[in-house]
Design a protein around this nucleic acid. Structure first.
Lengths: 93, 93
DNA sequence: TAATGTAGTTTATATTATAAACTTGTTTAT
DNA sequence: ATAAACAAGTTTATAATATAAACTACATTA
């Protein structure tokens, strides 16, 4: 009756990050931090988890002299997000 | 931008329980266990948390000689559930 | 009356989320 | 030049959570 909710997405911050990433081509660490209001540490950890799951890619470069981390959702990430939304609707509707 | 998700409801099992309870007048422990597929221990703990939050009431009685625990959603619980659904939609739509 | 089943609760453990502290380097003020 | 403040993160420690395993109390069946 109630489908399992992907624990990787059933997390406030990771869900917010994915929610942002599905809507844009890419987003950097600083942008994600501002939009989510998360602390750097928390964001860093959650990005790692999404990366490890293959839901996003992470590229490290420089913007001028400053380090810059850019995140992008993968196809697997998009599918997982859609699946999560679908599952969730069984609970809330 | 992203509203806070009530941590009491942002839990797979508690959400399933609340999801059931919003749709019915009342439900007993055994029914909730069957519908959610949860273990007794987990269900017992999560019911306690919903009770402590004032989201449900719990009545203990007997059905014949067997103990019977009946759960019912409260007004506060209904409101919290609605609020949670509303907040969640900011993330998934 | 011994074994099995029902309806839970309590407690222990494993996982998670989160913040605090730290690192590395840059920019600004003195 | 160098000290102070800032930027962009990472690592580590702690607190909270979810979950299952073990247990209790009683009922039913063999």
């Amino acid at each position: 009756m109630f489908p399992k909710l992907d624990p990787l997405l059933h997390s406030e911050l990771r869900l917010a990050v994915m929610s942002i990433l599905v809507g844009v081509d890419e987003a950097d660490f600083t942008y994600l931090k501002k939009q989510t209001g998360a602390t750097s540490g928390n964001l860093s950890v959650q990005i790692d988890k999404l990366l490890a799951a293959g839901y996003i890619t992470v590229e490290k470069g420089f913007k001028g002299k400053m380090p810059r981390t850019t995140c992008k959702i993968t196809t697997a990430g998009q599918e997982a997000f859609e699946g999560y939304v679908k599952a969730l609707k069984e609970y809330i509707s």
